[in-house]
């Protein structure tokens, strides 16, 4: 194969676009799932009750020390009798795996808010729930926003592994287009630029969020 020719890739632009949309959908679903898991587990990890903390550590260590690829295969092959659709297996694998990372982010965020803040809120007569909602969570969110953006970038890249169970995301479509056109360098170059674009959008978006340090230093 000689010469560089992006013509055949352009001819398959619909397939590339479909892959891109699926990648975005997978990452978004994965992020929602990861947060649904990460919020309670992270809160447990930051709690003062020892049994809760042990459960949180057990989940985080058990899940994040196993490769994501195996998480996806366990849902697709290991639990084959459930006969779940491949895209659901990918979302479950991504959510559970990233949930462990999300839990760590939630935990550090909650622990990073100075104790004086919650004490002050309680002293002012706020209930425990309102303290959490109005004082702890907003400050914790500012502190962990960059880590959350990092988690989403990681999810976008990791969603490429959904291709192993034939979910039609970007990497899978690239393989299909490569098989059609034999333009391997061009197609893989194209999709890496698309991944790079998605990740850059996420990391630039987080720079626009309010800066955390100043607020925390002022309040501490």
């Amino acid at each position: 194969m000689t010469g560089i020719d992006f013509g055949p890739i352009w001819a398959h632009r619909d397939q590339v676009a479909a892959g891109l949309l699926t990648t975005i959908a997978l990452s978004a679903a994965g992020l929602i799932g990861a947060l649904l898991i990460g919020l309670p587990i992270g809160a447990a990890g930051a709690s003062r009750a020892r049994p809760l903390r042990i459960c949180a550590v057990a989940y985080v260590e058990a899940v994040r020390n196993v490769p994501l690829l195996l998480h996806i295969y366990v849902w697709y092959l290991g639990l084959a009798w459930l006969d779940l659709p491949a895209s659901l297996c990918a979302v479950l694998g991504l959510s559970i795996y990233s949930g462990a990372y999300a839990a760590e982010i939630v935990r550090t965020g909650l622990l990073a808010v100075p104790r004086g803040q919650t004490d002050a809120a309680l002293a002012l007569g706020l209930t425990g729930w309102r303290t959490l909602r109005l004082v702890t969570v907003p400050q914790a969110f500012r502190i962990v926003a960059p880590s959350l953006a990092n988690l989403l970038s990681q999810l976008i890249k990791d969603s490429s592994l959904a291709s192993v169970v034939a979910v039609g995301e970007l990497a899978y479509q690239a393989g299909a287009i490569e098989a059609d056109t034999f333009r391997s360098a061009e197609i893989y170059f194209t999709i890496s630029l698309l991944y790079l674009a998605l990740v850059s959008i996420v990391s630039h978006a987080v720079l626009r969020l309010p800066r955390p340090q100043a607020a925390v230093l002022r309040d501490a």
Binding site: K157, D158, A171, S184, A185, S192, V199
Partner: peptide
């Protein structure tokens, strides 16, 4: 940092 490891392997 912006490319999935799978894509790096395919490249």
């Amino acid at each position: 940092q912006g490319t999935p490891v799978l894509v790096v392997l395919l490249i």
